[in-house]
Design a protein around this nucleic acid. Structure first.
Lengths: 129, 129
DNA sequence: ATGATGCCTTACGTTAACGTCAATCAAAAA
DNA sequence: TTTTTGATTGACGTTAACGTAAGGCATCAT
């Protein structure tokens, strides 16, 4: 019971295309095993894909995501080059916090703008009576 | 005193290239006047550019930004096709709020991850004593 | 007058993240 | 066994948002 998934199972559960999964493998974001020539995706791949898709929603590039995913693979001894990745993640975190703050401001402004729009829409042509 | 700015003044104050400003004009995001063949950017262009750059930081596409900017230009009578733009903005607002919430979660998780990384970095090789 | 600048237009080049199509190959169904 | 189905590997196409290079006016200093 290796609990592996075929490419189509992955596609339906995650809402992506086969092309996307092959592309991610070519970019070393996923590492499915092979049964002959076919790909078999492990739980590890599923976990990584979940993080990849979330990262994308935050505007991370695939390359940045790859760097961040590597943070999860330091359990095996050498923390080689980990410090650089660590710095990247810290900087990125500050970016995200700034972005969240700006986002909050923008949301408020947009809400106000929409209220104004609502008033325009609901004017019952009473001014030209 | 028209208070207009040349293309280079705009570039230095906003940190963009001339190409970018021309590109935005070609996409009908900016509408500089002309002195002969040269562009003269008005306060209105500056205000719009500020919004454009902020929109970009939120991951809006230029086309979406154009739609949103049009919301500011309904003062002149006909609310033609405004309802469509309005709907787009409402939907986008919900997107942004969802994104903000996810962003907050991700920030927390990333912080935890970084704490774990910090521990790795500061282990003083005491385990192999 | 003559370069040297600065801006203009036109147009092709670039990167990211896949889409799409063709040809192949293997397992499963008829 | 032949057909169908599904997966794989190239390899070229696509969109967004500019970059960059080429060639042409116009003005400003020398």
């Amino acid at each position: 019971m290796e609990e592996t998934q075929t490419i189509q199972q992955m596609c339906t559960t995650f809402g992506v295309t086969p092309r996307t999964l092959r592309f991610y493998e070519s970019k070393e974001l996923l590492f499915p095993k092979r049964e002959g020539t076919r790909r078999l995706f492990t739980r590890r791949d599923s976990a990584r894909l979940k993080l990849i898709l979330r990262g994308k929603r935050f505007g991370f590039s695939l390359e940045e995501i790859r760097q961040l995913l590597d943070m999860y693979n330091i359990g095996d001894g050498q923390a080689t080059q980990f410090q650089e990745t660590y710095r990247i993640a810290c900087a990125r975190l500050e970016d995200m916090e700034r972005q969240r703050d700006e986002l909050n401001e923008a949301i408020d402004e947009l809400k106000a703008q929409l209220d104004w729009g609502r008033q325009l829409l609901h004017q019952e042509t009473r001014t030209t009576d």
